[in-house]
Structure formats: C-alpha cells, structure tokens
Design a protein around this nucleic acid. Structure first.
Lengths: 146, 146
DNA sequence: TTGATTTAGTTGCATAACTAACAATATGCC
DNA sequence: GGCATATTGTTAGTTATGCAACTAAATCAA
C-alpha cells in the first residue's frame, strides 16, 4: 500500500481544481466589469509577452502549458482583436514571432492590477506561509506528472 | 498594502492551475490506455452517481461545481454512450433524475482504481500533512470567492 | 383562481482544450 | 546535392465551459 494512498472521496476536488476555476471566473468577471474585453486565456498569453515580446508560438506553448493548436487559436483571436501580430522570423521561416501592439501595451498595467486585486480577494485570511507550502505541493504534483 | 500582496510573477501558476490540468490529462491518458472510452468530465459526473444514484441535474450541478448547461450537455453525452438515462420525476415533473445503466456500474471499480493509481503517481514524495494543508488552502480560496 | 415569481432544464453562441493528420521549412547524414 | 527526419505551425473534429435567453412546471400571494 503506497504511502499516499488516498481515500476515494478526496480525489475529486484535487482533480477538478475548483479553486483555480473559481479564481479564473472571478478574474474574468473583474475584467468585464472594468471594461477589459479579453478572456483570461488571452490574458495569460499577453502576460508572457509583456515579460518578453516577440516570443514564438512554440515558446508560448511552453510558457503557458498549452499545446500548439491551442496557441494557434489564441493567437488567431488576439490578432483579430488587434492585440498582437504575427511576424514570420527571418532566421527560421517556420516560426511566427508574436509582437504586442500598442493597444496591448496600454492594458498591461490595468489588467495586472485587476489580477493582483483578484488574487488578494482570493487569499483573504490565508496564511502566507501556507500559501507557499501549497504552491510547492502543486509544483511537486506537476513535476511528478510531466 | 494588503497582507497577502502577491508578487506579479507568482500569479500565473496559481490561476491556471497547471497541476490540476496535468493530473486531469494523465488520468485521461490512463483511461485511454486501459480501454476506458470516457472523458474525465464524464467520469466526474458518474463518480457522484456511483455514490448516490438517481440525482437530479441540479444536484449534479452542485456536486460537480458546474453550471446547468454544462450538466445538460454532459448528461446528453453520457446518455448517448448509454451510461445513464434520464427519468422524469413523478413528484416534480420539471426534474430529471439521472440513473446509471448496468454498463456504467460495471466500469466503476476499474475507473476508481485507475484514478487512485493516477493520484498516487501525482503524490510521490509529497508529505501527507502538506497535502492536507494544501487542500485546506484551496478550499479557503474557493470559499473566499464563492 | 389568477397572475407574478421561482426553479429545473434546454438551446444558441463564443471561446477554448485535446487528438490526429497535415504542410512547410530546417537539419543531418550519406 | 538528395533524402530521411525533426520541428513549427495549421486545420478538422469532438468535447467542454460560460453567458444569456428561453420554456415548462411549481409555488406563492392576492
């Protein structure tokens, strides 16, 4: 019998990640109420481009833990919204480099503030040390499976 | 400045829940490799019906933290797969009571074993006490937002 | 009993995820 | 150079989620 044998009833909440779903939903709502008309998935892509502009789609896959078709379509939609543009790389013509538009640059601060506020709402009454420990457990779970 | 002010860089992994995504993906893969042809979302509905058969769709909404359209469609697909059937309630004709078929009952043990194995893989080298603490943090996050 | 309100479930529309198959380009070996 | 292989990105098909609008049935109040 393995050390961490789980009781059956405990499986579900771990697997579904209802906390992260609730957090995502709340952030989406806060975006909407403040007139930010993007999805949190789109925001999560922009997030990495704000840190470093001109990433390839493959690099966005790695950064966001998504597969290639997912990134293709997120970039499609971001391009429709005129928040990014694809620039074919000169060194390797298979690659698209993704660049932020000025519009996207303008919403960075506002959306990051909203995200921080949302996270603060989520973490009311939670001990900072416990949060760190929780994060390290989730990281370990991720490492065990990847 | 709130007590739990997060550094920006820490937002992302918390919000996206990459650990639960990875766990869901691994469970789906384990199902497939063992010839279980259902999605983990469908499994998560069956999970509650195995505990108690004949729940209404609204009760399934509450149990799985999904909205009504999501449950409508999951039950649609489970019905197509002949794993459940809708039975209109005699006391309240608005309600559908969802009952397992024999086929669904037959895959309970196998899928629960696969789920337990998957979770054990995920939790290698994680201290059981830390898991409990992690779960309570996630629960608190959920409660703060709901 | 009638009429307003609530509750259970469905449908339509948009976005997003995974799988599999595919096209185009780059790389590496002979 | 030329061919096999790997890499980058796209497309198609299925499933799932969220929101808004809707129908039908039940409840409650006048």
């Amino acid at each position: 019998m393995p050390n961490n044998q789980f009781k059956r009833g405990e499986l579900y909440s771990f697997i579904t990640g209802k906390a992260s779903t609730a957090l995502a939903r709340r952030l989406q709502k806060n975006f909407k109420q403040n007139g930010v008309e993007i999805t949190i998935e789109q925001w999560s892509v922009l997030y990495h481009l704000w840190k470093q502009d001109g990433l390839s789609q493959q690099e966005l896959c790695n950064a966001t833990f998504r597969d290639k078709p997912s990134i293709t379509r997120l970039v499609d939609n971001l391009e429709k919204l005129k928040l990014v543009r694809r620039v074919s790389s000169k060194e390797d013509r298979r690659m698209n480099l993704i660049y932020l538009t000025d519009t996207a640059k303008r919403i960075q601060d506002q959306t990051m503030d909203l995200a921080n506020q949302t996270l603060n709402e989520a973490l009311v009454n939670v001990d900072p040390g416990d949060i760190e420990l929780c994060k390290s457990v989730l990281q370990q779970v991720y490492d065990n499976l990847k």
